[in-house]
Structure formats: C-alpha cells, structure tokens
Write a protein that binds this DNA or RNA. Structure first.
Lengths: 251, 251
DNA sequence: GGGGAGAGATGCCGC
DNA sequence: GCGGCATTTCTCCCC
C-alpha cells in the first residue's frame, strides 16, 4: 500500500508508472480535463475527479455525482504517462474497438496504489432467469392446464423464457420481465409467436407476459395481439431455495 | 485532503462519519463482503474491493476488474457506520425503490476523503441525435427526392428520428442507429409504420433504417417488411461543425 | 412520476 | 467473433 498526498506531477508520474507495471489498483484524486475519441467523441473540461485504474487496465473517470463513470476505457487499455508543460498527461489506447483517451491533470490531490486479489463472484437471486425457473417448476402460476416443456429455449430469433402447451393442442409461450413489461416486451413476444406460426404452420399459439407490472400502452398492445398479462413477482431467496429443494427431491 | 493507511476499524469509522457529514468524496481500499437486497438480492463473499462514496451519496463497490461496480446504491442513500465484533459495518438504505446494503469490512487498507467540486458536463458528438440532424440537414444522404419535415419528433405514434415525404404522396420514416441495427430496430420501425398506417388510413409508407451496420436477421426482417437499409456512419466533429455552420448561415 | 428510447451502454451466453 | 438479450441497467426527455 502506497499513498501520496499532493505529490508533484513528476513524483506522481513515477508512482503511476510503477503501479501500472505491478498491475496495482490505482486511485487518483485530481483536477483534470478529458478527451475521448473512439465510439464517439467527447470533451470534458477541467474539474475535480476520481480516476480509477484497475489491475485489468480498465480506466474510470468519476465525477462527484452519479453511478456511472463520466469517461472510461475498456479493460486491457494501454496506458502511458508523460509530462507536458507541467501538466501530467495520461493517455490510454485500445484496439477493437479503436479508441483513445487523453487525461490532462493539473494537480494530483492524492494518489494510492495497492495490489488487490478478488476472484469472488456474487450470487444474485431474483433475475428474469429465476422467474422463468420458478414458473417452470410451478406451472399453476400460469394456469391449471399449463404444461411446461422447455426453459430459455434458444431459437434463431431469440430465446423463449418458458415454452409449453395446454394438452389440447395450444402452444404456450411466456415472456418474463422482472420489473415492468413494456412495448418492447410485447414486440419480443410477437416476434416469437410469428416465427412459430410460420415454422409450425399453426395459429394455435397463446402468448403470455409474466411480470409484476405492465405499462398502459403495452397492455393495450398485448390485448390487440391476443396476449395475456399475468401478474407475477420475481422470486425471493426462500422461494427459490424451496423450489430448488423440490427439484432435488424429485430425483 | 485526509488520508489514512491501515487505520484500525474504530479510527476508520470515525473518519468515515466525519467525511459523510461533510459530503466529501470517500475512497476505501478494503477487504469486505457485501449483501444487497432490493431490486434483487445478492451476496458477495470476502475479497479486496474499492468502495467509493460520492458527495451525492452514491455508493459503489468495485472489484479489481470490469467497468461496472459489482454492487452499488443509488444516489441519496442514507449511510450509517457501526462496529460489530471488530467488523466495520457500512449500511446504506434507499426508499423508492426500497433497497438496502450491508458491507462488512474486515480490514481497511486505505481511506481517503476530500471535498470535490465539478459542475462541468461533457460535450459528446457522434450520437444518434447527431446522425438524425445530419440527415435532416443533408437529405440526399437518403435519396434525391427525400424531403425531411420533422426531427426527433414526439408524435403520438412514437419518437421518430427523421420523418418526411417524397413529394409524391409517400410518407418516409427513418430510424437511425449509431452502431448496428438489430431485430429491435426493425420492430421499432414497424411499430411506427403500423400506427401511422392505422391512423392515416394509408399504406403508402416507406421505412428506412440508417446505420453503419445491420445484423443478418435484421436485414432479412427488414426485407420482409419492405424496409430499406441505408449504410450511413454517424458524423465526426468536423462534419457536425460544418452542418451547424450551415444551419446557422440559413438564418 | 410514468412512458419511451438511447447509451461511447456493459455483460452474459450460445452458436 | 456475431447475435440476441437481460441489467439491482442508467440517463435523458417528453407528456
């Protein structure tokens, strides 16, 4: 762990070089301007920022507000340091997509660098895939005659969250949304329905939207296309655990 | 600017409290685990992380890789500190959407805090809106008879990038994409076209996709629906400046 | 605040 | 690599 408060730019440059070489996590508090050119072009005038350079050479420029970096470079960027007329310059380059960034630092308020280890991945529950699994495991959430057949089925035109039938010749396809179904959701379902109609040569297809909420316009469009909206919340921890247990108990 | 290397947890707690009160930008290098519950549920086991707490009370937990935080809380979160069995705990709460986070910190490797000022917003060029403006200013990019009428217009049919006609009774609607048009793009255009057909009672509508690239399937679907794909790149700095100058010169 | 759509979206998985 | 799509998406803008 190395820390420097208000180093002069030459000292900062040396420390950054060292830390980059060692693949350390680098944090800079500074006043800087940023130019980016690549997928678009952007110019950010002088202001106070926090710069994060990660061991994988992801570069983030953060303002004092907001969740997202105001500028960034994707991982594996090639980062160089130099001093030009007293200004500390960081340049970063990427190929594919071709992009470059120049950060002009007037003053470094603070610099820290440290080796970091973290191979841990988070467990997340309550995603759309979890919803689909819940419905697959408990089809009565949809209807008493729903018989699920496949989960997250890959078709050429996208994957269908849950697919099945009603035992009376109707194919049932379900699109899950973890928050709110919108126009896009209906279009998605419509695209699947059209593909199946075409490939199976049947009109006997029932489309279902499973979500906790739906926008007004999406509801109208769903009705227009004969789709049904069923209010279903994404699962919580315990329900998931129970469902998994049930699945395990079956075998 | 205050910096502390390997403070004990009690000292770290006091400093964090102070910095929170002063709305400073706080950075923590630490080993911690994270629990999140709200829009979903997640659990992240112990590892080395960088925690950023912004003056607007956005909280970010960053791993040594990747552009996005592995866990976060939206701005205005209410953050509290405590020590429990030697573990430094940060809890954050938000209402609307209801969410909470608990970070359990084993050891603080480094802590820094500083007041930051930055009201600057970036200028970005090369967005979809820039593309639409470019086409509006130079309609021959589309065809020799295209007469643009509206730009980025909120119609009751939706948000149509560029809309116009060909002087011979055909309505022309253009959907721009700054990178690659996909199935979604076609569906979007299709939705607009359908709504206009319905409300104007005409079939004389030409849909155009303007983008540098298009996916294979999107191209097939576009042909199915009689839409035309025109390869157009988003504008660069100089072209934009020229276009703006032209627009200015007109008035 | 809801609804709709873009973003320098990112990230994941399947082919 | 492309393609399709979810995301604790975020962010902006309009109604």
């Amino acid at each position: 762990m190395r820390q420097y408060t208000i180093p002069d730019n030459e000292e900062a440059k040396q420390e950054i070089k060292k830390a980059l070489k060692k693949n350390e996590m680098i944090t800079l508090y500074c006043n800087c301007s940023v130019h980016y050119k690549g997928r678009a072009e952007s110019k950010l005038e002088n202001g106070d920022r926090v710069i994060l350079i990660k061991p994988d050479k992801t570069l983030l420029v953060h303002k004092p507000e907001g969740r997202n970096p105001i500028n960034w470079m994707a991982e594996r960027s090639s980062i160089k340091t130099s001093i030009n007329g007293g200004i500390l310059e960081l340049t970063a380059e990427n190929i594919n997509p071709r992009e470059s960034m120049k950060i002009s630092i007037n003053e470094v308020h603070m610099l820290s660098a440290k080796k970091m280890i973290d191979g841990i991945k988070p467990k997340i529950i309550g995603t759309e895939a979890d919803m689909a699994r819940m419905i697959y495991d408990k089809p009565t959430l949809i209807s008493n005659d729903f018989i699920p057949a496949s989960l997250e089925e890959q078709t050429k035109y996208g994957f269908i969250d849950v697919m099945g039938h009603n035992g009376k010749g109707s194919i049932i396809i379900i699109e899950c949304k973890r928050y709110k179904a919108d126009l896009n959701t209906i279009q998605q379902l419509r695209r699947y329905a059209e593909r199946i109609k075409k490939s199976k040569g049947t009109n006997n297809i029932k489309g279902i939207i499973a979500a906790p909420k739906i926008t007004k316009n999406a509801e109208i469009m769903a009705k227009d296309w004969g789709f049904e909206f069923i209010k279903i919340d994404p699962p919580k921890y315990l329900e998931i655990d129970k469902a998994r247990q049930n699945t395990l108990n079956k075998y």
